[in-house]
Amino acid sequence: MIEKSFGYFFFLKQTKNKCDDVRFIYLKITVNGKSNEISTKRKCEPSKWDARSGRVNGSNVATKELNRFLNVFAMQVYQAKRWLMENKKEVSAQALKEVMTGNYGKPRIIS
């Protein structure tokens, strides 16, 4: 099944410790109106984050490295999508997340 709509964006999510000034960077994938979030396991200060571009502002080495990491992470979404399509699997936000996290095809335990 070919998806009708596909998109992704990076955003900051508040940590459980509300007094912490840094936030985790998440990727939100949306396919046909259904979305799923994946943690990049990276952090950023909200003052340095550009929500429009979904990247960190600045020109120092750490900022460039983080933005490069986010670009590679975004490419992995397209690689996961291509893998699903080549293997004639349904492309969904959940399937993309499972492929990217290495859990695709593993049985889910429901408690």
Results as ranks from 00 to 15, higher is better:
W49C: 06
T40M: 07
G58R: 09
G58T: 06
Y8A: 11
R23S: 07
Q79S: 10
I110V: 13
G33K: 00
N36W: 11
A80C: 10
R52S: 14
K28Y: 10
A93F: 01
Y26I: 08
N71F: 12
K106A: 10
F73L: 00
F73Y: 02
L12H: 06
R55A: 07
T40E: 03
L66E: 03
R68Y: 15
K41W: 12
G105S: 06
N87I: 11
R68E: 12
V91P: 12
F24H: 12
M75E: 14
A95C: 06
L96T: 06
G33H: 06
Y104W: 09
E3V: 05
K4C: 06
M85E: 13
V72H: 13
W49T: 04
Y104N: 07
N103C: 11
A93R: 00
F10T: 09
I109A: 13
E65W: 12
L84F: 04
V22L: 14
R23Q: 14
R82A: 11
F24R: 11
Y8G: 08
Q94C: 08
T40G: 00
A74G: 07
I38G: 10
Y26G: 08
N57Q: 15
F10L: 07
E98F: 12
R55K: 11
I110G: 09
N87F: 00
C19L: 15
F24G: 14
T63G: 09
N87H: 12
W83T: 03
K64A: 09
V56R: 01
F11Q: 08
I2Y: 05
K28S: 11
V99Y: 06
V91A: 05
S92K: 00
A74E: 06
N32T: 04
E45K: 15
R42I: 06
R42P: 06
G54K: 04
N71Y: 12
W49L: 00
F73V: 02
K81C: 02
S39A: 08
N67G: 11
M100I: 01
S35V: 03
F24A: 15
S47D: 13
K89V: 05
T30N: 01
N57K: 15
V99C: 05
Q94H: 12
I38W: 02
K16P: 00
Y104E: 03
K43G: 09
